[in-house]
């Protein structure tokens, strides 16, 4: 299977409650919490499209789209 290529990584800031689950369990440490405690994809170039952030987000705020 070919490696998935990231098309977009969207975080709904108004749904995110800043629990930090996505930040902690991202295997590539792509995400971090900003100054208002909302998740942001700070190092998107490292994303391997594993979708673990999307699957584990308790607020259903993350959407990973691949090509």
């Amino acid at each position: 299977m070919a490696k998935p290529i990231l098309k977009s990584h969207r975080i709904k800031a108004d749904w995110c409650k800043g629990c930090g689950i996505c930040v902690e369990f991202c295997p590539k440490k792509v995400l971090e919490l900003d100054e208002s405690d909302r998740a942001v994809a700070a190092r998107l170039q490292d994303c391997i499209c594993c979708r673990l952030c999307e699957l584990r987000c308790p607020d259903l705020a993350i959407e990973v789209e691949t090509e």
């Binding site: 749904w15 409650k17 800043g18 629990c19 699957l55 584990r56 308790p58 607020d59 259903l60």
Partner: peptide, 16 residues
């Protein structure tokens, strides 16, 4: 949405 569960509540993960 956003839902009423607390930040980090596992119930959202179950819903997901």
């Amino acid at each position: 949405f956003p839902h009423l569960w607390c930040p980090g509540c596992g119930h959202g993960i179950v819903l997901n």
